[in-house]
Design a protein around this nucleic acid. Structure first.
Lengths: 119, 119
DNA sequence: CTGTATCCCCCTCGATACTG
DNA sequence: CAGTATCGAGGGGGATACAG
């Protein structure tokens, strides 16, 4: 109850409202954890990947974790999974539009890292 | 940002170099976990808070966790801690410039949530 | 009011083996 | 190649008590 009340008017939304309406716990459920942002980063900025490629690109992840995380991301509508009926099997993962909309956030994160941390 | 093979996809100046130079594990160490982003969100958008206020604003956090997370954030230069020699004690926490630089990212996250998830 | 000090649970994550 | 099935360890996180 104090502090930082933006004078009058503003183009930005109310700070209090912003804090309330941007529920971090809910967001964390979608993109939190040790691997999801890394996986999404690869799929968003490098495009469609098959399982093996992803495993190589996401450093240190195990098959078990990769499968699990991809299933969760798929369930939340962040990646699509396409199975090709071939031998040997081929499965491709692609970032959805919902995931691609995270591009701005990734860039903001990248800029922050470059400007504030990497010095 | 020099380029590698940016031929077939993506419009933004994003490529493999981007993914490599934005190390999510390092970022996660600074602002990852269950509480840090929530704490920072409050301090950034609502301004300086004392310990008790913070505990009330960050829903569900315990004293132990709040103290620990604040110590970590302080050590990483994201919050400052000011102790007032009074009785009863008063301690105020403030987001540093380094933390305030996360504003853009928070807004990007907020926009994403509003546009892609809250529907 | 603002912390420490303990104790401990649980859940994420990892290692390994096996399959179509 | 792309999974599934287990099992187990580790640590992040929580509850409580106590202190300055």
């Amino acid at each position: 109850m104090n502090v930082m009340k933006n004078v009058t008017n503003k183009s930005e939304p109310s700070n209090e409202a912003f804090a309330e309406r941007c529920p971090m716990p809910d967001i964390a459920r979608l993109i939190g954890g040790k691997w999801k942002l890394i996986i999404l980063q690869v799929l968003i900025f490098q495009g469609t990947k098959r399982f093996g490629e992803l495993k190589r690109d996401v450093d240190g992840i195990t098959q078990t974790m990769l499968t699990g995380q991809l299933r969760a991301l798929e369930e939340d509508g962040l990646v699509t999974r396409e199975v090709f009926p071939e031998v040997p099997p081929r499965v491709e993962y692609t970032a959805t539009e919902k995931a691609m909309a995270l591009t701005k956030m990734f860039h903001a994160m990248h800029d922050w890292w470059m400007l504030e941390c990497k010095k």
